[in-house]
Design a protein around this nucleic acid. Sequence first.
DNA 1: TATTGTTATACTCTATAACTATA
DNA 2: TATAGTTATAGAGTATAACAATA
Lengths: 158, 158
Amino acid sequence: MTKALANVLEDERIELGEITSSLGFLLRVAQLQAFDAFFTTLAVDGLKPGEYTALWVIGLNPGLRQGSIARTLSIKPAHMTKLVQRMVDAGYVLRKIPENDRRSVRLELTAAGHDFVEKNRGAFLSLHGAERARLSPAEADQLVALLRRLVGLEEKNT
Amino acid sequence: MTKALANVLEDERIELGEITSSLGFLLRVAQLQAFDAFFTTLAVDGLKPGEYTALWVIGLNPGLRQGSIARTLSIKPAHMTKLVQRMVDAGYVLRKIPENDRRSVRLELTAAGHDFVEKNRGAFLSLHGAERARLSPAEADQLVALLRRLVGLEEKNT
DNA sequence: TATTGTTATACTCTATAACTATA
DNA sequence: TATAGTTATAGAGTATAACAATA
């Protein structure tokens, strides 16, 4: 106990210097915390952030090619194949091979897939609440806006 | 070519909906981009973000216990062992077993380790430049400040 | 008994290339 | 030839538990 306390105290005295102003470092720490929050809140259904996001995007874009979704979410083709297999096995996703290009795979949600997305929608989006505990609502909105710009999701400041 | 172009066009039309306001999603995308920038800029020396950060912290806190550094950087003990082995093999880090507690390992940089950190310091920190291309300097500072607060590195707004 | 770090195992995500089937 | 997706393999990072040495 005393030793454990000593560790914590030592940890707190660790000097980090300028890396605490490094965007890369801050993004990593923030993402680790966000993932923790995700699993704490949603582990119930055994879904992973990337899987839930994929289902979400398939739901919004039914019939889209597997590769398009993979590129948009920065998922590598090899990984995407396995992810889709899991979603198909879970009964959430349907694979359709179009006649005009039988190399490609088009994805859509099953009824169960839609239910799943809908059921977890609130929890997934309300991660905001947990994640933003240390920020005021206005600051949180500002952070989201800045990240969207940083990432290229918005071309110009409105 | 025509097909490849078609893919890009299709990708751009993908609807993402409310996840683009999800902090978790934005943080993941931002971090992927930051890592890309890191490897584009620094791949020269074959260093990885986590390894460079560890060297940096060891340099600022010579003699610190391996476990303390691992906890501070959210590196799991098993992984930390391998990371330290690589750094020792590379000649950047020295392991010292203190007499008063021979279970623990205290780390410090070798001269080569210091040189390495110093040599890549600018490139590592100036990642900012590449990462922040889409933001003005003021906005970038604001983003860093908000992330620091989000992450708990700053208790109160100054 | 508890703690520090190591080893071993397994699983996820990533990286890469070889492969198939289409086009 | 090029493309879409798959398979196979290897690596990094993580999670977990069992372990040795020390306290």
